[in-house]
Amino acid sequence: MNILKISSVITLLIGLTTSVFAQKFITKNGHTSFYSEAPMENIEAHNKEVLSIIDFESNEIVTTMLMNGFQFKKSLMQEHFNEKYVESDQFPKATFKGKFTPNETIDLSKDGNYELAVTGTLTIHGVTKPIDTSATIEVKDGAVSGKTNFNVKVEDYDISIPKVVVENIAETVLVTSEFTYSPYSN
């Protein structure tokens, strides 16, 4: 009887601690933007509905977004982006899947900042390429936020830019992501 009691208390405690310190975090409103700097003009677009899940147990991260969700200031640019360059109707999503290695063990129970080395694959326009980048993670009051930026070479993803507008669009665009995560329960 006693053993039963103790074991049930232990199970309860384990259950409690895992729910307090969830290992998986999610955001459905992450922010990803890209910036293209070219002689004629600079172009930027923002997507504020990015889905990202980070798992601190397996050190995995998955991020996916809708290409149609990138908003530009000028409607014509947005139309060209979707119809001519990334062909959003055919390839509606961009996805990153990868693993990360933190510079030190991440302790979600106290505030701290961490540097991550991230390696994985990025799929845009139906083309999947390996990618290595770095990211930062901040743990504050039990909440987790992450930031990263990296360059994407447009050509790598079979996105062709017509010669006429080559002066307007850079060959490499800077992608920046910021995620504020909340604990995720299955």
Binding site: K28, L51, L66, N68, Q71
Partner: peptide, 12 residues
Amino acid sequence: CTGMLLDIILVD
């Protein structure tokens, strides 16, 4: 409508 992730997304 910009499509579906886990949810259906509407912008603007």
